[in-house]
Amino acid sequence: MSAILPPSNRLWWKQPIDKVEWAWIAIAFVWGMVMFAMMVYWHVYGNQNLSNEAYKTTPELFAAKAEKFIAENTIRTETEQAIPVVKVPAGGDGYLIARLWAWYPILELEKGQTYKIHLSSMDYNHGFSLQPVNINIQVIPGYEHVVRMTPTKEGTYAIVCNEYCGIGHHSMLGRIYVK
């Protein structure tokens, strides 16, 4: 009779399905296929795909590589804390450390160049949130994520941490310059 009683037709699985219901099921199915195809399509023809390149690492290993990169490519320091501004070689590798509670160092990029930016965390989970572009990537301790990025516009960009990482979370703000 109703949804709170056993089906009135004991052989309910033999009841034919109405045309309208079939049509809706078909629409839902086809739409699911379209959405599935869109993701694959974008991997082939789209220009915004998250990199598949990632390695297991440790905070010590990653920090050593980043320090070497910073020592070789620093062009100046900024703020009272003398945070190094590091010019990433065009088409080359840049390292960005996420730690409590800073993004280190400041990176300087050029518009239209493609960079391999290595991301990892020294401690907790952090969230790389590039603003105002609004690209968001999870940064996890023990994993080195190599993301290829091509800036499309000049300007000063902020990196907000958008994964909760403790009491100083809101002060974890980094910077990227695009010349």
């Binding site: 009272e80 949130s129 902020a158 907000v160 958008n162 994964e163 979370h169 809101h170 703000l173």
Partner: peptide, 16 residues
């Protein structure tokens, strides 16, 4: 772009 689980949209205490 506003973050979830974030106390301060003004980023007080940040270097930038």
């Amino acid at each position: 772009g506003v973050s979830r689980r974030h106390w301060d949209m003004a980023f007080s205490g940040a270097p930038f």
